[in-house]
């Protein structure tokens, strides 16, 4: 067991997978000698060399597109997009090529690849260094989308993503890159299956459902509620496409009150999908409407960086609303 941060876990997990399977290659901007602008690929270039740790031109369409072609030829590429905000030149490659390849070829071709997206706000980055674009990808059948929030899950989900047979959009909460440290098992086969949520904290009064960077605020809100004598259950979805609706529905059905937390803009958000599914499947068992706490329908602001995030205060306000209903 080593105590490590999320960003250290990314680099060490990639190193483990590259050592385990020579088909695994890393590509992206500055991923080589620089080790990535966040150091998420630190040490890989020295250990595995330029053939397997490829510094690419500054072109996201080329990075993601090349990853598709590498995957088709039998490699296991892990592409880094420097910030999730810069994925859009490569959006077509993900949506039109990677996501539809298995389907459009009747299973003849597949694209087992990972696209890593450092995502989320709270880093004084303004609208082009802070976004959470998961909804764009969750709306694309043929992709898998994960957004872990802990070093343990980063290790387990990144390994599942690299070893899986489908393209995975791997979102990383960059605000938490160095904010959380925990013991991570040395087990080189520590896997977290894609599609499984986890209960972070058990509780009886309200269920808080969140994922990714917002897990930090959600857990702090649960602490504050505990001080008030309110017992909150906290579910970390971890995977968004597919997502663990059975676990969420089971817990929500038992408790009857639910708040969904995400820092992405509200309209058409993944939080909306969770809330709609709960309303559709469990309405009779609810004591209050499902409530969303989300970012706002603005571009991510610069000066209001922290206020935009659904922090503990806004979460507590929403919990009060479902308790008072």
């Amino acid at each position: 067991m080593a105590v490590q941060t999320i960003v250290q876990t990314v680099a060490r997990t990639l190193a483990e997978e590259m050592a385990r399977d020579e088909r695994v290659v890393v590509l992206g901007e500055d991923v080589g000698k620089r080790g990535g602008v966040f150091l998420a690929t630190e040490g890989l270039f020295d250990r595995f060399g330029p053939d397997r740790v490829i510094d690419t031109p500054l072109a996201e369409a080329a990075i993601i597109g090349a990853a598709v072609g590498m995957a088709v030829h039998g490699l296991r590429p892990v592409a880094e997009i420097q910030f999730a905000d810069y994925v859009f030149p490569g959006f077509d490659q993900l949506v039109s090529q990677a996501a539809k390849l298995r389907y459009r070829s009747g299973g003849a071709f597949t694209a087992p690849m990972v696209v890593r997206l450092p995502a989320g706000g709270g880093v004084a980055g303004g609208h082009h260094h802070s976004q959470n674009p998961e909804a764009h990808f969750v709306h694309t059948p043929g992709l898998q989308v994960v957004y872990p929030s802990t070093p343990n899950d980063v290790k387990g989900l990144l390994k599942s993503a690299v070893r899986g047979d489908d393209p995975v959009v791997f979102m990383e909460p960059k605000r938490l890159y160095r904010a959380i440290k925990e013991e991570v098992p040395d087990d080189p086969d520590h896997l977290v299956p894609i599609g499984q949520a986890v209960v972070r904290r058990a509780g009886d009064d309200v269920v808080l459902v969140s994922y990714g960077a917002s897990m930090s605020e959600t857990l702090r809100a649960a602490d504050a509620l505990a001080e008030q004598g309110i017992s909150a259950e906290v579910i970390d979805l971890r995977s968004l496409l597919p997502w663990d609706e059975d676990l969420v529905l089971e817990r929500v059905a038992r408790v009857g009150r639910v708040v969904v937390v995400s820092e992405a803009p509200r309209t058409g958000s993944f939080a909306s999908e969770v809330a709609a599914t709960i309303a559709e499947e469990a309405l009779d068992l609810l004591e209050a409407p499902p409530v969303r706490v989300t970012g706002f329908d603005t571009p991510y602001p610069y000066a209001q960086d922290r206020a935009y995030l659904p922090g503990p205060d806004r979460i507590l306000h929403a919990v009060q609303r479902v308790l008072d209903y």
């Binding site: 490829i54 090349a66 995957a71 030829h73 090529q97 071709f109």
Partner: peptide, 20 residues
């Protein structure tokens, strides 16, 4: 490689295969 309609979207994957 199975054709996709979006024009030129297969060209970056072709390069990826060539790199492999």
């Amino acid at each position: 490689f199975t054709v996709a309609s979006p024009i030129a979207s297969h060209v970056p994957p072709a390069v990826g295969t060539a790199i492999a």
